[in-house]
Design a protein around this nucleic acid. Sequence first.
DNA 1: CCAAAAGTGTTCAGCTTACACCCATGA
DNA 2: TCATGGGTGTAAGCTGAACACTTTTGG
Lengths: 237, 237
Amino acid sequence: MATQKNHHHEHHYKEKDRHLVAVDSIIFGFDKEKLQILLIKRNFEPCLGEWSLMGGFLKKEESLDDAATRVLYRLTGLKNVYLEQLYTYGDLNRDPGARVLSTAYFALIDIEKYQEQLSDRYNAKWWDIEKFPDLIFDHNQMVDRALRRLQRRTRNQPIGFELLPEKFTIPQLQALYEAIHRREMDKRNFRKKILSYDFLDRLEEKDKSNSKKGAFLYKFNEKKYKELVQRGYSFEI
Amino acid sequence: MATQKNHHHEHHYKEKDRHLVAVDSIIFGFDKEKLQILLIKRNFEPCLGEWSLMGGFLKKEESLDDAATRVLYRLTGLKNVYLEQLYTYGDLNRDPGARVLSTAYFALIDIEKYQEQLSDRYNAKWWDIEKFPDLIFDHNQMVDRALRRLQRRTRNQPIGFELLPEKFTIPQLQALYEAIHRREMDKRNFRKKILSYDFLDRLEEKDKSNSKKGAFLYKFNEKKYKELVQRGYSFEI
DNA sequence: CCAAAAGTGTTCAGCTTACACCCATGA
DNA sequence: TCATGGGTGTAAGCTGAACACTTTTGG
């Protein structure tokens, strides 16, 4: 990869327009029943007092991914969470305050790990994905797109686990899938399918928080999943 | 949507870093046998003489989509082509000359409509997707991602037709799908499937360029496809 | 002892896949 | 007349979907 610079080259970049670039994150969580998104009530202009996604401006010395990670950390105190670039919104007047491009990311976090105290600083609140307030700018579109992407991803990549605690039960996992895909599933078929891939390890423990009988806890086994992929099989549910 | 500006608000944007933003296009074509991409040999620094995607810088007064459309038009002389945003590449050192973000788009064009004379100005050349030179920066990654996206899109949206002339034969369509998905398909099954959706209109004409017997020409019927979608059916091949 | 959630198998329909021969025609 | 690509139907296997009862145990 050539790195030489010459006069012609410098000139090439110098005369071009420069732009404000933001990142905005759709943060998904799951409260054991419903799919949720984390929104903030803006305490700054424009659109002070309205609800929006968490965002921030891209800095000179950071990559887009780093900016998204930084913004997410600032709001949730979490690192090493699932974060995926979604789409870049570049319409001229999407932000009434200035011409700003925004690259949207979506994140999947274990809602239990979320540090409540951080909510206050940003007026953050979890909202049910089925019922949340109108958002500023084009943030509604971003959420729509994120949900569709999440639906697609969870169908053929085992990333749903990112929304659950490390140990979870099959009924919890099914409830998560039902919330994401907005439809009920047959519990026999669901269990049969998910266990057939053999990448979930059943533990000895049971979770009795939802029933007297208790449900076995499982853990996602990354190694087994990778072996599955290597063998050419692909997960689909 | 509030549009008021105040001091606080102006301040909010003013202190932020601004960035160079480019768009780069992966332009796909199909020559009745192989899937191709249109590349240019750079006649400017950096990386003069190396092969790259066609690109350009985003201007102050245009949307990202407009920029992609403009860049595509400049190289091909074509408008109203299928163009879809792919991904935004934002690593710090992806362009050795300066910190430049790039939003990649991919385009599907009918190679017959491509105006050859435009090639010269940009040293453009069609390359077989299976065998093209190493590209500058992260452009190889862009092509990889575009091909995967194209494979996915053509599986469940009838956009493959964008790569063919208005009238095409079933064997031509099958050859296109085989090129995109890099695998041979059974001609009976392919024909059965694609015709079962009933959104292709068979014309009276035959194309005899490939055989003595000749193959019937078909046209994609957008209206019938939309009806299919409305009925809740979805195309998949 | 009973309510409430966890757990378990089988059947049927529809779809995908594999597969082989005749047709039309220009040279 | 023959070589070449166009066009057609059927059977087997697999997968997804539908469906009802037993188990466990805390209250």
